[in-house]
Simulated assay, not measured.
Amino acid sequence: MECTQPDFWEQRYRAGRMPWDLQGVPPALVDYLRRTAATGDVLIPGCGSGYEVQAFHEHGWRPRAIDFSPAAVERARQLLGPLAPLVREADFFAGDSGGPYEMIYERTFLCSLPPARWPDYARRCARLLRPGGRIAGIFYYGVDPDGPPFPLTPAVAAQVFDRFELTVDRALPATASLPLYAGFERWQEWQLKSIGP
């Protein structure tokens, strides 16, 4: 599928056609960073313009952001200035994503992937996280099969994230989302289950 290839996204970044770009840090992440004292290493896959890098950095986290679109990486580095080295071009599934991490931050990356890749995403996250680590962020739910964006359903999410436990789940107000996602986003935190002996 085209959306699994860098050129699909490269063309959109180069043309400025980015309906997923919030032009800033999502309020849900701002709230999370204010209410939690946790810090550590965080991976931001499919980082796009990279706004969240600075937010994590300012709250004591050690962010690493990756995208496989050169245009996205270039844009993020320009926007981040002195924090530009925290962004690099890499394929989440094939490249060196570093780690292990306390957290993998999610916003618009999972829903950009065709559903057939979602189990690969969850397995890759499980490998990159420290024991007890989590995937946290904004997840897109709905029923429209003609993505991207591709929406989750609760039943599918439970299957995809079978190695994780859903510890936080709350709907975001439509006013906190872009029109493309309004009314369909949820802040969720999925904690990696401990593996028995």
Rank of each mutant, 00 (worst) to 15 (best):
R62T: 15
W118G: 10
G183N: 08
P115R: 00
G81D: 14
L180S: 08
L172T: 13
A37I: 04
S194R: 14
C125A: 15
R12V: 11
L180Q: 11
M103G: 02
D91A: 07
I195P: 01
R186M: 02
L192K: 10
M1H: 12
T4N: 08
P148R: 06
W9P: 09
R75D: 10
L29I: 10
R127C: 13
W118H: 11
A55H: 00
Y105G: 05
P27E: 14
D67T: 03
D67A: 05
P19K: 01
Q78T: 14
F68K: 12
R14T: 13
L80K: 07
L113C: 11
Q188D: 09
P19C: 03
Y140P: 01
E2T: 14
G24M: 04
W20C: 07
A174Y: 02
G99M: 05
E106F: 04
E165S: 14
E74A: 14
V143M: 09
P85L: 12
C125Y: 09
R88N: 11
L29Y: 03
D96N: 13
A136P: 07
R14D: 10
A122Q: 09
P85E: 12
A158K: 15
R134F: 13
L79I: 00
P149M: 09
P19D: 03
E106A: 09
V30L: 12
F164I: 02
W187C: 04
D41H: 11
C111D: 08
P27T: 08
G46T: 07
P70I: 03
L172F: 04
Y13R: 08
Q5P: 02
L110S: 11
T36W: 04
D67I: 01
Q54G: 07
R64C: 12
A94N: 15
F139D: 08
P151T: 00
D91P: 07
P115D: 01
R117M: 14
L192V: 12
R17K: 15
L129V: 03
E89T: 07
V160P: 06
Q78D: 12
A65G: 11
Y121E: 02
G81Q: 13
A65M: 06
P26M: 03
L180F: 03
P70A: 08
R117P: 00
Y32N: 06
Q78H: 14
Q191V: 15
F56G: 01
G95P: 09
Y121D: 01
Q78S: 14
A15F: 05
V53K: 01
A90N: 06
E102N: 13
Q11C: 04
P82L: 07
W9G: 07
V30D: 10
Q23K: 14
A72H: 00
V168S: 13
A38D: 15
